[in-house]
Write a protein that binds this DNA or RNA. Structure first.
Length: 421
RNA sequence: GGUGAGGUGGCUGAGUGGUCGAAAGCAGCGCUUUGCUAAAGCGCCGUACUUGAAAAGGUACCGAGGGUUCGAAUCCCUCCCUCACCGCCA
């Protein structure tokens, strides 16, 4: 959520910045400001009426303590009660309307985010390793040959978009998870967390999944709670409504959780295989920091995720996402794409985003700065990484033609063997 | 799920219808004094919204939402959460 004061003080700037994403967002600014204007007028009237009521009531109290008659005053207060009620209702509605409008305005892009209308304008900022194109088998065939997973039986249980990992295949995912978590906790200093998967509406609103993307989420109990689409939701909201001490920032959290997504907008896309699932595991990195730390923390967070791919000997590239392709709550994002030889393409396995105070304002997450003033924190998140696509890249990269899957060295300890025959 | 007790400022904790945004203590900040790693005294010390050029005002907030009342932290109702005990259960 953007700061309404920024919109009031410099609407031109806000419109310009939103236009970098898409001109349609600029048009929202005037609507918000019109509502803000009406809201403040109503609020001022309510406050004046209440002030008058408080004054009279206080007077009644004093008179009563002197055993004097107060009928006239009481009648006076009563006479404006109805009007006050109506105005309060108006004011409340306008407040809600303004919040709703504001919740649907995306974050402003970072000054360094490259301009561009769509994904084709994303910028490759670096790459690592050689994406060999040796006509490897597709991970579906490899998984079948090695006996790692079963899609047909998964569809009996849950329909399409689910997988059952079987035997060594299940163990391989567990090994990957343990490897990733140990890397982030022991080498990069993140605190490991085990988080709830069902969260309340306000929590989903805090990180920006609601209200705009409700159709992408799995709700339960008639929409009172939601299955988290990423641990970003639970981890970032962990300190919501709190005031942190500057000295404890940045906070660095990591959790591996199942993630649930309807993928309703992607019907038909990536239907086969592990690439787009309704449920998948993901190791998520979250940082909460002060504004001056945020740029640097995004760089290190991205590096922390990249390190995992390097240790697994998986070639990848890093894309800087342009304004037109930027996620709703992000001001700057680096995507990590791992090379999948069987697909002949790069797969997005991580999206590392800097969110400024956009989420923190929504969830009222603050810290006390050096002057003792409360200020909104900045939040960052990134995958480290999503499991299924990492799994695809691992299979397609390290399985020998008609041979075993040779595990990269760091994984062998976790898997308990050096290969899967 | 049942019963009971609770939810007040960064923390502890008083406050059962009127001048209470809320005592006191701790923590924090500032000053004074004395001085061996500190003590004592004094002062300051919530948040959000809003009016105003500013100075300075106003409104709201005592778990959430309703209600009673001229007036609610305080009374009533509903819900949520915490704690204790019981029941059930991985």
């Amino acid at each position: 959520m953007l700061d309404i004061r920024l919109l009031r003080e410099d609407p031109t700037f806000v419109k310009e910045q939103l236009a970098r994403r898409d001109p349609v967002f600029s048009e929202m600014v005037d609507a918000v400001l019109a509502c803000d204007q009406k809201r403040r007028e109503a609020e001022t009237q309510v406050q004046q009426l209440r002030s008058e009521r408080n004054r009279l009531s206080k007077e009644i109290g004093i008179l009563k303590s002197h055993h004097q008659r107060t009928d006239a005053l009481e009648r006076e207060v009563k006479s404006s009660a109805h009007q006050l009620e109506l105005l309060e209702e108006t004011s409340r509605k306008l407040q809600e309307e303004q919040r709703t409008l504001l919740l649907n305005v995306p974050n402003l892009p970072h000054r360094n985010t490259p301009d561009g209308s769509d994904a084709s304008k994303n910028v490759v900022v670096r790459s690592w390793g050689e994406p060999r194109n040796k006509q490897n088998e597709d991970h579906l065939l490899l998984g079948e040959r090695l006996g790692l997973f079963d899609f047909n039986r998964a569809s009996k249980l849950s329909g399409s978009g689910y997988v059952c990992l079987t035997g060594k295949g299940a163990r391989l995912e567990r090994a990957l998870i343990n490897f990733l978590l140990d890397l982030q906790t022991e080498e990069h200093g993140y605190k490991e967390m085990g988080m709830p998967l069902l969260v309340n509406r306000e929590v989903m609103e805090g990180t920006g999944q609601l209200p705009k993307f409700e159709e992408e989420m799995y709700g339960v109990d008639g929409g009172l709670q939601f299955l988290t689409p990423t641990a970003e939701v639970s981890l970032t909201n962990f300190y919501r409504d709190e005031i942190l001490h500057q000295r404890e920032l940045p906070l660095k959290l990591v959790a591996c959780t199942p993630c649930f997504r309807r993928e309703s907008g992607a019907a038909g896309r990536d239907r086969r295989g592990l690439i787009r699932m309704h449920q998948f595991h993901k190791v998520e990195l979250v940082k909460i920091c002060s504004p001056d730390q945020a740029d640097e923390e995004l760089a290190t967070l991205t590096g922390d995720a990249e390190r995992a791919l390097e240790l697994l000997e998986l070639p990848y590239r890093v894309l800087e996402i342009c304004t037109g392709d930027l996620g709703f709550h992000s001001m700057r994002t680096y995507d990590l794409e791992v090379w999948a030889p069987g697909q002949g393409s790069f797969l997005e396995v991580s999206s590392c985003s800097q969110c400024g105070d956009y989420q923190a304002r929504r969830m009222n997450l603050r810290y006390k700065n050096q002057e003792g003033k409360n200020e909104f924190c900045h939040t960052l998140n990134g995958s480290g990484t999503a499991l299924p696509r990492l799994y695809v890249a691992l299979l397609e990269t390290h399985t020998q033609p008609n041979g075993p899957l040779l595990l990269p060295e760091p994984l062998q300890f976790y898997f308990g063997a050096s290969s899967i025959p």
